[in-house]
Write a protein that binds this DNA or RNA. Sequence first.
RNA 1: GGGGACGUGGCGGAAUCGGUAGACGCACCGGACUUAAAAUCCGUUGGCCGCAAGGCCGUGAGGGUUCGAGUCCCUCCGUCCCCACCA
Length: 857
Amino acid sequence: MKRYDPKTVEPKWRAAWAAADVFRADDASRKPKYYILEMFPYPSGSLHVGHARNYAMGDVVARYKRAKGFEVLHPMGWDAFGLPAENAAAERGVDPAAWTRDNIDKMRAELQRLGVSLDWSREFATCDPEYYGAQQALFLKLLKRGLVYRREGLVNWDPVDMTVLANEQVIDGRGWRSDAPVERRKLNQWFMRITDYADALLDGLDTLERWPDKVRVMQRNWIGRSQGLRLTFAFDPANAPTEGSAGLEVYTTRPDTLFGASFLAVAPDHPLTEQLAAGNPAVSDFVAACRKGGTSEAEIESAEKLGFDTGLRVVHPFEPDKTLPVWVANFVLMDYGTGAIFGCPAHDQRDLDFARKYSLPVLPVVLPAGEDASSFHVKQEAYVGPGKICRSGFLDGLEIEAAKRAAVERIEAAGAGVGATVYRLRDWGVSRQRGWGCPIPVIHCAACGAQPVPEGDLPVRLPEGMDFSQPGNALARHPTWRHVACPSCGAEASRDTDTLDTFVDSSWYFMRYAAPHAEEAIDRTAVDAWMPVDQYIGGIEHAVLHLLYARFMTRALSDEGLVTAKEPFAGLFTQGMVTHETYRRQTGEWLTPDEVVLRSEGATRQAVMAETGEPVVIGEPVKMSKSKRNVVAPADIADTWGVDSARLFVLSDSPPERDVQWTMAGAEGAWRLISRVWQEFETVPPADASFARGEAADALRRVTHRTVKAVGEAIEGFRFNSGVARLYEFVAALKACPRGPQTDGARREGLSAIARLIAPYAPHLAEECWSLLGEQGLVATAPWPQWDAVWVEDDEKTLPVQINGKRRGEVRAPAGASAEFVEQLVRGDAEIARRLDGLTVQKVIVVPDRIVNLVAS
RNA sequence: GGGGACGUGGCGGAAUCGGUAGACGCACCGGACUUAAAAUCCGUUGGCCGCAAGGCCGUGAGGGUUCGAGUCCCUCCGUCCCCACCA
């Protein structure tokens, strides 16, 4: 028997797809559109198995939808700006642009080899001047709209690499590369006003029904809307700051506990603190001490509350005779609320810790049910549960929510404050002091200030020959690039030398695919024809940042009139990672999978080094990483079993949202399925074979139609693994079916179905099978097989019969048989009667076509 | 500290609406083919008792709702993820 040879078959069909240009999306098509997109990769230079799984999933959906009659847009591009290119430039002296291009070429070839059905005519990289020029135009539109602004902002500064770091590059307070403690510096930065969209982004989550709840919850928490009160405490004239400011504004979500207030606290970087520090070294020393604290989880967990009594006092808004001390406290954050709080120790754990340390009063004002106001005390644990307000004048006896409303009303009436919504979300700082990024299209003029680059001068291109050999911003260091005339007055001026956060690049790329080379950044007609993305697929690690920025950008550009869609991604799927076991020598040194030979001794698995036979310790499967050397390249897998096996395996062993463990044995299993399918095509019944009735033929037709239905439903529901399981069963049924004129029609139908059903998973094999059937054209353009209810539904059903919930037998009844009919059958069944011996049937539950339960005693 | 998810054989997992738990794959074991091995093919495999027929137990633990619970509710245990001195 001949063997299936992927090495010759696979390239042949990829060439056939390319020649027929079958994956090009037609903008003018009258079919319903379907836009499927996987998150575009950073061109690191090599495709790993995780990428392969991601794109294989998207490809299953793309090929399935195409077969279902949709005009499918399935594009690919490159998230090509970012630090790795600068690091390569610094370490090897290469040009980051050339390095990136080279990587893109390598990865494109690998991706093409996977047989992913992509429309390559729309490919672009974010480092193309055409793309980032368009992005600059969008930036200027948003600037004009007031959604981009410039202010001084705090940044994470790495003193060793001399660069600003993104929050995610700061790990436990240290730079991710330098490991140096990160400093907070103030720099002039461009910001996007994402907070203007906080409500829209929050409310919009409710419309995203095809997003995982997990991601929606994470975004909701990230935006962090809270309802509360902004309230100004007036200073006690006897103890006011020298400048005589009127009061101190705090934010609270618990105005109901105002009568329990025992102090106010401001952040170490609050303007009041800074004012006091200027005249008092004790204050500035305290502020310096606060800055020392680490930001790691353990450090925050155990961090001591630190406070400094300023000596200032404020008047309680409800009790004019009472004054409260104002402290500086290390646990108050400047960038949330107003940077100042009132402390109610009885009902907030942090306030309580602080009050205990500095001997401040603890006044419970919320009484849990069943407690007595005179005997209820708070010791080391603050009471945060429900209850009735007490010791609080006009609030006494109210429940918490009612008391909040009453307190806000009273404060508003007195003009001391206003009910307010506060968000955890901050504006998005987009300036990066990096050379390999999209230049910010602004010119700074001493006389005219920050001037947008005139649209006709776009793109503002990166210069050739930047010097990356030193740490810091290579663009700022370029000898000539920044010098330019002011577009307004013509005087000597200077370009902004920052580049945009790469998250800006990825916040709108999915719209650019609609018309990747349009003059306008966004060609509205083209974009509206394709947007929103019907199905987006990517890693859960982008649950907040990328997915939130993309939602913001889509809304902002929609309000600008560039696109109709308000939300970019109608459906989102977050796929799991590919893991692999780890292997270590006794000495602890990591080994790659090819350096190891696995053996089974009965039920136990053992590993030894391939060369020396030295025993190897097998470790748990973990995410593939270079440091643990457990990386398997898709190319290696493809060399051994062909890319179809690799695709099939990464989709078959685990549900797609979960991690899948790569194993040789699993890949072999996928290969076995492929060979078995192919072997079924060794003899193919003629196209004009007629259907004959018969037990074997009918049985096969039932399996065929049921499998068509099940595989389609599995793909629609992102249960690719279940779909593969049905294919295994199907090929077994084909194999078991006797051959001959009696079954030719049924076999032909089955073979035609399996070729098309397996096409999304193993497209090369499917084309080969399709051609063996003698079909004209490609399976890639063939319609999805239809199933017929006649063959899917059984004429006769087997109903399990339970007695008191335990299975005790079964009866066969025609489909749709009435409850009465089934009950008669059960009562006439000898086996059931035997089981019921000595029991009296109290009740009979018949669920038609499903189950019978007899309640007996 | 806050939020969320998950827990099913030796392993990955299936059971989509509350209706036969363990589909399918891996591994193991047995068999066929082979001088032999690999590959391939066929078959067994949740646990316990039993020669068998069959019986009992069984979806992290305990309770509840229901004729019926892996699935719904409550409590607990464990694992993982996200956020975090967010007022």
